[in-house]
């Protein structure tokens, strides 16, 4: 046997004794931390790849030509895979919803907070109960008791401000971000510039 025996450490005793903070502890912590950062930055692209891709995100804005829309008419456009109701309201409809501001609402909200121009109502046409598309885009559709929309699935009724007036839906139809590019073009998906 060799005379230059490397002294054997008794690992069991060193484990039991409270070890002082050593250079080895520092190295283990530092390399562990570097490994954790490395693993994290390796996993990030995987998670990120499941988010909407660039082409999907680019389709997240829709420009709508609204010049042919007459008073009282409505159109449905697709935005992010969901229907958006654009309704050009008559003066009577505007008056009625503004009167309704004071009545007892399920989800209280003033009409003026839900619009940019009184004539134009833009809401996401998905019932806030369980996701059906309410009827009422055509004048011949059942628009429910409040003249807006009526959900055929479970009977929720909305007014011409898209506010829920009759359950079971708990919330008003949400207003998507939109902006008027000019008098005849509406861009959905982009916030209107802050009023100066």
């Amino acid at each position: 046997m060799s005379t230059k025996q490397i002294p054997q450490k008794n690992s069991k005793t060193t484990l039991k004794e409270p070890s002082p903070k050593t250079r080895r502890d520092f190295l283990i912590l530092a390399s562990g931390a570097a490994g954790a950062v490395g693993a994290g930055s390796f996993l990030y692209p995987f998670v990120s790849s499941m988010n909407p891709a660039a082409d999907v995100a680019a389709a997240a804005e829709v420009d709508v030509d609204i010049k042919s829309l007459q008073l009282g008419q409505a159109i449905t456009v697709m935005w992010r895979g969901k229907p958006v109701f654009i309704r050009r309201r008559t003066p009577e409809e505007i008056q009625s919803v503004q009167e309704n501001d004071t009545s007892k609402l399920i989800d209280p909200e003033l009409d003026k907070d839900r619009i940019q121009k009184p004539e134009w109502l833009v809401v996401i046409g998905v019932c806030t109960h369980l996701g059906c598309v309410p009827s009422g885009q055509k004048p011949t559709d059942n628009r429910g008791e409040y003249g807006g929309w009526f959900c055929p699935c479970h009977g929720s009724a909305y007014d011409v401000s898209g506010r829920v007036r009759q359950g079971p839906a708990p919330k008003n139809l949400p207003v998507p971000p939109y902006t008027f590019l000019d008098d005849t073009t509406l861009r959905i998906g982009k916030e209107a510039p802050v009023n100066v």
Binding site: Y44, P45, F46, S48, S49, N51, A53, A54, D55, V56
Partner: peptide, 10 residues
């Protein structure tokens, strides 16, 4: 390669 986030990397 072009649209998916980090698709090129994967």
């Amino acid at each position: 390669m072009r649209e998916v986030n980090f698709g090129w990397l994967l």
